[in-house]
Design a protein around this nucleic acid. Structure first.
Length: 400
DNA sequence: ATTCCACAGGAAACAGTGGTCC
DNA sequence: GGACCACTGTTTCCTGTGGAAT
């Protein structure tokens, strides 16, 4: 039997790779034609049209579930407009920022500022008041007479950050034009959450939601078309079996209509097939890929938890299906074993809800009459998975 | 009908860190 | 060097809750 390293290297060298172009299978790839989104493309273009006439368009709010192509469409429209106005004396500046990637409000504003060309000396990464950062951004727009379009992805997340800190940045953003003498500012908000508007200040809603566009979910048939298109470009002809394609579309489409997930799935399936030196991607590969993606998600999220969260997860594992009080006692014992100070019960309750959000554990509220009210938690993943992942952690090795 | 359990979970305050500005 | 700022992780304090027990 040959060395596994050599075997893989040989295969790679002999050009047996069935994926010709990996980039096409990543969601950042911008296809020439965005399938099934004609009317939405028209709507977005319509509402940004005033730019061509050198005036400020209405603020725009774009809704749609993840993987419905919202961001892709918005970016494509803006880049096309940019191409057209390039030669005129009406400079537009596109600023894209994802609220979820920036953990704080400050971070988001700084990332916007950087894209506008504010250097570190003009806009430090920390230390300033939010209002000061905002002022500097507006000054930059004013000085250069820029016509800025701020595309803020996952704006619902920003709204959440804002409500936590009590700053009304969103309001100020939507009203920024009143403070600008030169240039203009247009806001394009993208949100996964259709209900997020309800949580906003009504003054913000009226100016932010001047125009609204909703992206509907893809159905299985549409996802299949999208997959076919990408497969044609990325894979060697005929290397993806029809049943594999169908399953892929069904798995991703049936649940959420998420094209991004579908593309991810076929990519991982393709990689698995290659690794096994198969010349075709079969249904089995897709199933395996789906499972692998799930497991990876679990493992990375388990690994990323800080020590006390890990202890809590272990406490749940040891007392599966038990109440907060029991979990807390178990957690305190674990703290003693590893020699760490225990946190308060309030903090642990909060941690439990945070962990529950990630889906690793599930909680159920139970009323036990005179025995009070409690929440019972249990693991949704296998305890083997937890043990396997935590075994690498030096402080946890002994208790696992 | 009232009491009372065992918490859930909101609000506020605090400590500590790492920074700017004057 | 002191005032000020954002932010995180935490503690402290508090109000609310559904149904078994009385």
């Amino acid at each position: 039997m040959s060395d596994p390293i050599d075997r893989l290297l040989d295969a790679a060298e002999s050009g047996k790779s069935i994926i010709q172009n990996r980039d096409i299978l990543h969601f950042t790839y911008m296809p020439d034609i965005i399938l099934h989104r004609n009317s939405e493309q028209e709507q977005v273009t319509q509402s940004l049209l005033p730019i061509l006439k050198q005036s400020r368009p209405s603020n725009l709010l774009v809704y749609g579930k993840p993987g419905t192509g919202k961001t892709l469409v918005v970016k494509k429209v803006i880049s096309k407009i940019q191409e057209r106005v390039e030669k005129s004396n009406f400079p537009i500046k596109l600023v894209y920022s994802n609220s979820k990637e920036e953990t704080t409000l400050y971070g988001l504003l700084v990332s916007i500022g950087r894209q506008l060309g504010l250097e570190k000396e003009e806009l430090p990464t920390t230390g300033l008041a939010i209002s000061e950062v905002f002022k500097r951004i507006l000054e930059k727009i004013d000085q250069n007479g820029l016509n800025a379009i701020f595309v803020i992805d996952e704006i619902d997340y920003l709204a959440q950050l804002v409500s936590k800190t009590g700053k009304d940045i969103l309001y100020q953003l939507t009203r920024a034009n009143e403070r600008l003498k030169n240039g203009s500012l247009t806001l394009v908000g993208i949100s996964n959450d259709l209900t997020f508007k309800e949580k906003l200040d009504p003054r913000v809603i009226s100016s932010l939601g001047e125009e609204e566009i909703v992206f509907t979910n893809y159905n299985v048939e549409q996802i299949k078309k999208i997959l076919e298109e990408r497969i044609n470009e990325a894979f060697i002809q005929g290397s993806v079996e029809e049943p594999a394609l169908n399953l892929c579309a069904a798995l991703a489409g049936g649940e959420h209509g998420d094209a991004r997930r579908a593309i991810d799935l076929i990519r991982v399936a393709g990689e698995l097939a290659e690794r096994q030196q198969s010349e075709i991607v079969t249904e089995g590969h897709v199933r395996e890929a789906s499972q692998k993606i799930e497991e990876n998600k679990e493992e990375t999220s388990l690994k990323s938890y800080p020590l006390h969260e890990k202890l809590v997860i272990l406490a749940i594992m040891k007392a599966n299906g038990s109440s907060t009080g029991e979990i807390y006692t178990s957690y305190k014992n674990l703290c003693k074993v590893v020699g760490k100070d225990e946190l308060t019960q309030r903090r642990i309750t909060q941690m439990l809800s945070e962990i529950e959000l990630s889906g690793i554990i599930s909680g159920r509220l139970v009323h036990q009459g005179i025995h009070g009210r409690t929440k019972k938690y249990k693991l949704t993943i296998s305890s083997e998975m937890v043990k396997k992942t935590f075994k690498d952690d030096l402080t946890l090795q002994d208790i696992v």
